[in-house]
């Protein structure tokens, strides 16, 4: 599972998928997750990293990251 090559989120949280022509808007934690995914970091490690940084219940974070990754797949941002 990896982010398509030429997709990147800019600082304001915009993504353009040149393969499909779709544009997306995400929030800052979304930008973070996408850039971590681009570095081929696994979802489990991403959760670890975010858990260190944010004030959040771990189970909730795991669920949210999983839900987010499903959406990324749905939007063809993840291969």
């Amino acid at each position: 599972m990896r982010v398509r090559k030429n997709i990147a989120a800019n600082e304001e949280g915009f993504l353009f998928n040149p393969t499909t022509g779709d544009s997306f808007s995400t929030n800052s934690i979304g930008v973070e997750i996408i850039s971590l995914l681009k570095k081929d970091i696994s979802l489990r490690d991403i959760v670890d990293e975010l858990y260190e940084k944010y004030d959040v219940d771990r189970a909730l974070l795991e669920r949210d990251v999983e839900d987010f990754s499903l959406q990324l797949k749905e939007f063809s941002i993840l291969e």
């Binding site: 997306f24 808007s25 995400t26 929030n27 934690i29 944010y54 004030d55 949210d64």
Partner: peptide, 14 residues
């Protein structure tokens, strides 16, 4: 250091 306030990751198609 206090952890940052959490907001659920969110993405929407424009």
């Amino acid at each position: 250091m206090e952890k940052q306030r959490y907001e659920r990751p969110f993405i929407v198609k424009l």
